[in-house]
């Protein structure tokens, strides 16, 4: 029972994927829905991996899009190179994913090093700068290497209607690794560092190793998200991996609640859906309202989550209480 409860999110996502896979085979899933699902899966991977650093290690990172960018470009480039000899199949995908993850992990290691000395705001600024530097580097590459301002073009893409299944499989891999890590002595060590670094040090925790571990794993999965992203687009430019994108991922983590993986998943789904929905209904002149309404909704959610009056309200009227009442009554 405990095991089932621990993995309920994986089971739910697996079930969800299977249902949609069947619907796809029956031809009921629209291309736009498939595309939305790809987006959602990528956002979940990004949010869960960022949550490891922000929610569990307790370091504010504003450069998550930078790691994703590294993964997208290097994994994407790899797939362009490999698609000739290996064909547009799983082998290309897997090698690209590995390359993207490893390159992003290496960047994570580099960012983890200053994280050992910098604290709070200063580390946040460093990671912010890292994201912008990565973006600018890819912007200034030659047309033959990474496409420069035009971005990477001609990345192979899988069947539009089924690629989201691959994305969700990667979500499961992410959850498997990160959740198992968190629910082990290593996860306890990460949380101990977050709660009280001085005490963790005095308790014999190797702060250096664990901080690097957190950053490397988080970056590796952001890299994977980037590779998946490159497979959903035939071309993309580094312009989109700016700090706004990093902040959006951070917003998801904060909305979901620091240190809550399930919260991050739910928030990733909601935020991606909200973004897409607003973009769909607010067309033409109304498009300017999109960011405004998006921001208002976020503010409303944060207030709902944290205001004491609302907390009391939820405490009084939640589903568990209702069930108890019904049981008590019968």
């Amino acid at each position: 029972m405990g095991k089932f409860k621990n993995n309920i999110n994986c089971i739910a996502i697996a079930a969800f994927t299977v249902i949609f896979a069947v619907l796809s085979l029956l031809g009921v899933v629209k291309a736009s829905t498939a595309n939305l699902l790809e987006d959602i899966a990528i956002k979940i991977i990004l949010a869960v991996s960022l949550s490891l650093v922000v929610g569990f290690l307790g370091e504010l990172s504003l450069g998550h899009a930078g790691f994703m960018c590294v993964g997208a470009y290097l994994g994407g480039k790899m797939s362009v190179i490999l698609v000739e000899p290996l064909g547009n199949g799983f082998l290309t995908l897997i090698v690209s994913l590995l390359v993207g993850a490893l390159c992003a992990a290496a960047c994570g290691f580099l960012i983890g090093l200053p994280a050992l000395r910098l604290r709070g705001d200063y580390l946040a600024i460093t990671t912010l700068a890292f994201g912008e530097i990565v973006k600018t580097i890819f912007m200034n590459t030659s047309k033959e290497s990474f496409g420069g301002p035009e971005g990477l073009t001609d990345t192979p893409r899988f069947d539009k209607n089924y690629f989201y299944i691959v994305c969700f499989v990667m979500v499961l891999v992410t959850l498997f690794v990160i959740q198992n890590l968190i629910r082990s002595k290593h996860g306890r060590a990460l949380k101990a560092i977050r709660d009280n670094e001085i005490a963790a040090r005095a308790t014999g925790i190797n702060i250096t190793n664990y901080k690097l571990l957190g950053f490397v794993i988080s970056a590796a999965f952001a890299g994977i998200a980037g590779v998946l992203f490159s497979f959903t687009k035939t071309n993309f430019s580094s312009q989109m991996f700016d700090y706004n994108y990093s902040i959006e991922i951070l917003v998801i983590v904060v909305l979901g609640g620091m240190g809550s993986i399930n919260g991050s998943i739910i928030a990733a789904v909601l935020v991606t859906f909200l973004n897409r929905y607003l973009a769909n209904i607010l067309t033409g002149n109304l498009a300017v309202l999109k960011d405004l309404i998006y921001a208002l909704v976020l503010i409303a959610i944060v207030i709902y989550n944290n205001a004491p009056a609302f907390a009391d309200f939820r405490e009084k009227h939640n589903a568990r209480k209702l069930i108890e009442k019904v049981k008590g009554g019968s």
């Binding site: 709660d195 001085i198 005490a199 014999g204």
Partner: peptide, 22 residues
């Protein structure tokens, strides 16, 4: 420590488990 330094968001059990980890 003079001013208590616990891992405040971990459970009592987990606090001790962190101490055991080496």
């Amino acid at each position: 420590f003079q001013n208590i330094r616990l891992f405040s968001n971990l459970t009592v059990l987990e606090n001790v488990m962190v101490g055991l980890s080496n």
